[in-house]
Amino acid sequence: MNVFRLLGDVSHLVAIIILFLKIFRSKSCAGISGKSQVLFALVFTTRYLDLFTSFISIYNTVMKVVFLVLSYATVYLIYLRFRSSYDSESDTFRVEFLLVPVAGLSFLENYDFTPIEILWTFSIYLESVAILPQLFMITKTGEAESITTHYLFFLGLYRALYLANWVWRYHTEGFFDQIAVVSGVVQTIFYCDFFYLYVTKVLKGNSKLTLP
């Protein structure tokens, strides 16, 4: 464990908690893409299958459980508890255009052709594109509440910190996970234009992000 990965995990946890609390306390999921949240729940489900078979550390197990519980709880809030506030007309990204290529690629490019390894690879590739329905929804509605932009900021920051973690691990222990690194770079690139808007607009104190 290094400081970049720890800060990355904390940033990821903060993002997930921000989103959950925003929906739970405002009793509304307006402006939130339910499709992205379903994809994230799928990412955690396919990545943490080894939750009960291989024990790494208390931290590892606890974080996996927390991520799984909060992601499914968020999907529950969006599609069941507060479904009347779910803006399905704006959440129209065709997720099959993500799932099919990601599934195909995970069969082609993986470290080991075994179910658990292919599912892990699937989760890595899927995570890199899972935010696209949310970003697409924001461009479609042309705006986002500032709490939603804080969620996206910490979510984007988490994988950027993981990139620093991989640089660190490469230089200190020769660790290099090509699939995770390439996907992490792609994932972080998708946030770049959002990061620019976040810094130039939201941090200037605007109540919400309105796209030009």
């Binding site: 996996k64 991520f67 995770a180």
Partner: peptide, 10 residues
């Protein structure tokens, strides 16, 4: 192909 590494990352 990467050697069999323990997946210690989240």
């Amino acid at each position: 192909k990467l050697n069999e590494k323990k997946k210690d990352e989240l």
